[in-house]
């Protein structure tokens, strides 16, 4: 893992089942992360005229849940379109399950839930999902059965006979999810799948995505709702200005960003005495009291602070009741990364 570079090799252990090869072969010659990767991007760049939408990105995606985070214009949609074979890279190579993502054969492995709210509006949700099933090669009864199963799964079975034009935003998102899953893809790419979905529906969809990830599917979710990333994603890709600035689990990325101040909440029976000791230490940049027993410290670098705190507890006998890192969330990490990216300019 590296920061501030286009080349990010995600070192997370692989999990779940090995994806099927498009050509029926059981495996590649090379061992290592690429061999178990569902997606493999090698030094991919994408230009739109003079604009570089994606700049020298290298990454692999393994089965499990991956979040894709970045500000507007970061290149998230371009990355997604490259992965789903809607775009071809200007430079580099995009492979899904060993196949070039642009080629039709790769589409067997990809389920795509687009951000755009476009449908055949006059069709019913049921007919639409069934149509997509048929376009994926399912015939007659299997297509019907699979469609029904997915409509049940997204909780739309009882409402699927109405024309899509009459659906709410949340219902449309569910139908989009159902059509993306209809051919049981190895890679599921979801662009803002929770837009317009009510809180209960959101929980349902998140649960389904977790189940899919647990079954060994690679799920890539692009979202602006960063809070949900904490609960949802095994690892996160941070994009900024077309570059992949970090990839890995939140904890890994947070550790990587040791130079950034971290907020730590400490609960102690002796808050004032502890504060007096802490504030003298160079790793503590700021302190404030939180209630009767709480302290919130702003620290840098965190690992030195935690070592010092452990010494205080063990050698000086300070009682630490609770220790909590406040801004290791995706949002905070995102903020830090964007700040880093700004300094990189």
């Amino acid at each position: 893992m590296s920061q501030g570079s286009g080349h990010v090799s995600d070192a997370l252990p692989s999990a779940g089942t090995r994806p099927r090869r498009a050509d029926g072969a059981s495996g590649g010659a090379r061992p290592g992360p690429e061999a178990t990767s569902v997606v493999n991007l090698q030094q991919v760049s994408k230009f739109f005229g003079p604009v570089i939408a994606l700049n020298d990105v290298t990454l692999q995606l393994q089965p499990g849940m991956t979040g894709l985070v970045g500000p507007n214009g970061a290149g998230k949609s371009t990355l997604i379109r490259l992965l789903t074979g809607q775009l071809r890279p200007s430079l580099g190579r995009v492979q899904v399950c060993g196949c070039d993502a642009w080629r039709a054969v790769a589409k067997r492995h990809i389920g795509y839930c687009a951000d755009a709210d476009a449908f055949y509006e006059e069709m019913s949700g049921r007919a639409f999902v069934r149509l997509i099933a048929r376009l994926h090669g399912l015939r007659g009864r299997p297509a019907r059965q699979r469609s029904e199963q997915l409509l049940e799964q997204v909780n739309m079975a009882h409402r699927a006979d109405r024309p899509i034009a009459s659906y709410s935003k949340g219902m449309r998102q569910r139908i989009k999810l159902a059509q993306a899953l209809v051919h049981d893809p190895d890679l599921l790419v979801l662009d803002e799948p929770l837009n317009g979905v009510d809180p209960i529906g959101r929980l349902e969809i998140l649960e389904q995505l977790r189940n899919l990830a647990a079954k060994g599917k690679a799920v890539l979710v692009s979202t602006h709702i960063l809070d949900e990333m904490d609960k949802l994603a095994d690892r996160i890709l941070f994009l900024c200005r077309g570059r992949l600035i970090a990839a890995g689990s939140l904890a890994q990325v947070r550790t990587m960003l040791a130079d950034h101040p971290l907020r730590v909440a400490i609960s102690s029976s002796q808050p004032r005495a502890l504060a007096a000791r802490l504030v003298r230490h160079p790793t503590v940049l700021g302190l404030r009291f939180e209630g009767e027993t709480g302290l919130i410290a702003r620290v840098r670098p965190p690992h030195e602070f935690f070592r010092m705190l452990a010494e205080l507890a063990s050698e000086d006998g300070f009682e630490i009741n609770r220790l909590r890192v406040l801004d290791a969330s995706t949002e905070a990490v995102f903020d830090y990364l964007m700040e880093t990216a700004r300094h990189m300019r």
Partner: peptide
């Protein structure tokens, strides 16, 4: 980020 930290208050015991 500066806004977040403007709430840092004075500290009476053992510091300047």
């Amino acid at each position: 980020m500066t806004r977040k930290w403007q709430a840092v208050t004075g500290f009476s015991s053992g510091i300047d």
